[in-house]
């Protein structure tokens, strides 16, 4: 399998969030608490999901782990290293693939090594990632010529080639159609199992979280808090129709008040 060549060059690392708070000031001067004293540990090589309705602060949290935003208080560490600004050891992928439109697929994937000045020694690896993501025939295409799924795979390859210690996925498959999405879920799991990169997946999709992750962190909005952390002990590869899968699914729906026998309290919740 092609994954042989992409054994982790960097050891994955654990992630520690302690009492993380984030408040925003609205235009009218009122303070909004986006995250309220959030504490969470993610083990090395673990894949966890953050789920919850819009406004529960999951994307804010991800941006803080990426170093793009700073917490109002509390601490974030990768291993023993405090997070201080963005860096190549924490890869981030958004729902919008955000490929650089002026670069070909190959050049997009090369961005990380080029930015770190190590492109010369990584050229062979670029080919490997093109092969891994099935993008070899499109290496010289521009992003606007790609389908949504191909663009997401290119964005994934671009994030992975840096061998991040932690991979942050912000609804990476949210904009894809159902079939492409399920295929991409398998793809991400396959790469993750080969690399064992510590991964934090933000998603709206309960099935996606159950299918892919070791643990699911269910969050509630205003202020953003952890409602519950649920272990998913189903063995891999998982099956979407496994009765235990469906049981866990029902449990999460219950927790989010979407089981059906009582009216939903939280508004603005996507599937």
């Amino acid at each position: 399998m092609v994954t042989a060549g992409i054994e982790a060059a960097t050891e994955p690392s654990s992630l520690h969030l302690r009492e993380v708070c984030k408040t925003f000031r609205r235009a009218d001067g009122a303070e909004v608490v986006a995250l309220d004293r959030l504490t969470l540990d993610v083990a090395e090589g673990e894949m966890i999901a953050l789920i919850g309705p819009s406004g529960c602060g999951k994307s804010t949290l991800l941006r803080m782990i990426a170093g793009l935003d700073r917490p109002t208080s509390g601490s974030l560490r990768v291993g023993s290293q405090p997070i201080d600004g963005p860096g190549a050891e924490r890869g981030l992928m958004f729902q919008d693939p955000s490929l650089f439109p002026w670069k070909t697929v190959r050049r997009n994937i090369e961005t990380g090594p080029a930015a770190r000045g190590v492109l010369r020694s990584h050229r062979g690896e670029v080919d490997e990632y093109l092969r891994l993501t099935g993008l070899e025939p499109f290496a010289d295409s521009y992003p606007h010529q790609l389908s949504g799924g191909m663009a997401q795979r290119a964005a994934l390859a671009r994030a992975l080639i840096n061998h991040p210690k932690v991979l942050l996925l912000d609804e990476p498959l949210g904009a894809l159609d159902q079939f492409t999405r399920m295929r991409m879920q398998d793809e991400v799991v396959r790469i993750w199992r080969a690399r064992r990169t510590t991964t934090v997946l933000v998603t709206h999709d309960i099935d996606e979280a159950l299918y892919m992750c070791d643990r699911i962190v269910v969050m509630t909005p205003r202020p953003g808090r952890i409602e519950r952390v649920m272990d998913v002990t189903l063995e891999r590869p998982r099956h979407r129709n496994d009765p235990r899968f469906l049981e866990l699914r029902a449990e999460i729906l219950e927790m989010l008040h979407f089981a059906g026998d009582e009216p939903a309290e939280a508004e603005g919740v996507a599937s």
């Binding site: 190549a88 890869g91 650089f100 930015a115 994030a159």
Partner: peptide, 10 residues
Amino acid sequence: AYLDVARTLG
């Protein structure tokens, strides 16, 4: 987003 992505790529 372009700048954010580039930052996280180092």
